[in-house]
């Protein structure tokens, strides 16, 4: 069968964001886990090399409180500070300047939200905040709506990754608008990473099959009954989805097409 085994597999290139290379196309959040120890285990199982983190006040009344960095080292993983909880550009800039001072790196995730009910991004404010951050020297990965028009504007002002939501944050509803996600992928030259909305492995695979460069998720792993096993499932789903995208799926047909030959029937 050697001669019937043509090598058509396309070698994949790794995910590169703002000049940084990542082995995994899965990025995971570090919120909502039962403990930081469980979080660290899930991270290992996910194979991710980038994690999102938040910036919050140090608990002064309990300095012995467990700390994220005691379980997950910034030496081993890329910490991507977010602006969760920020509702204005000024809030976001203030938060990420503090993150840059605490960590010493400038790759960040911008999210400027609006109504807590749906946590949809405020796109006008997101665009303004992104401009402020880029001017201040940050590499901005931006959480955004699945609107191709705003995605284009964010890319044009210099965001280093466009991260449209698949569904509302924490909802686990999966990719609600594959048409828009695909439009964004087609028009965007920097990485497109679906951020938010993934509920289970097939959702991650769908995002990757659409041609996304990566998937970012938190709740789907943290709130699974077994987060460590789900982290492993997500790792495989992202790889499977990417492979399927690169392989190129068969065309959909309206009618059946037998797999066994029709000739030579007895």
């Amino acid at each position: 069968m050697d001669d019937a085994n043509p090598k058509v597999t396309v070698d994949d290139t790794p995910l590169v964001v703002a000049g940084r290379t990542f082995n995994s196309r899965l990025i995971i959040g570090t919120g909502k886990y039962a403990t930081y120890a469980q979080n660290a285990e899930a991270l290992k199982a996910s194979g991710a090399d980038m994690i999102t983190v938040a910036i919050r006040r140090v608990n002064l009344s309990n300095p012995d409180e467990p700390r994220l960095v005691d379980f997950i080292s910034p030496e081993d993983y890329t910490f991507l500070p977010n602006t969760a909880g920020c509702f204005t550009g000024e809030d976001a800039v203030r938060t990420l300047r503090l993150a840059r001072e605490a960590g010493g790196w400038n790759l960040v995730k911008l999210e400027v939200l609006s109504d807590p009910k749906h946590l949809y991004p405020d796109m006008a404010e997101t665009l303004r905040a992104a401009e402020m951050l880029i001017k201040d020297g940050f590499d901005v990965m931006v959480y955004c709506s699945d609107d191709p028009v705003y995605a284009k504007k964010l890319e044009e002002i210099g965001c280093c990754a466009i991260m449209p939501l698949g569904a509302p944050i924490g909802s686990g509803l999966g990719i609600q608008n594959p048409v828009n996600i695909r439009l964004i992928i087609e028009q965007t030259k920097v990485p497109v990473i679906v951020d938010a909305g993934v509920g289970t492995a097939s959702d991650a695979a769908v995002a990757m099959e659409l041609g996304c460069d990566g998937v970012l998720m938190n709740t789907a792993i943290a709130e699974a009954k077994d987060p460590i096993r789900m982290a492993s499932a997500m790792k495989h789903a992202v790889i499977a989805g990417r492979e399927a995208y690169l392989a190129g799926r068969m065309p959909k047909k309206r009618y059946a097409d037998p797999s066994s030959p029709l000739s030579g029937l007895i």
């Binding site: 959040g29 570090t30 919120g31 909502k32 886990y33 930081y36 979080n39 999102t52 983190v53 938040a54 910036i55 919050r56 006040r57 140090v58 002064l60 700390r67 994220l68 960095v69 910034p74 910490f79 500070p81 977010n82 969760a84 503090l98 993150a99 605490a102 960590g103 944050i169 924490g170 938010a196 938190n218 709740t219």
Partner: peptide
């Protein structure tokens, strides 16, 4: 004064 650090987040 505000003193902040990294915590888990999405």
């Amino acid at each position: 004064i505000e003193i902040v650090a990294f915590v888990g987040g999405g």
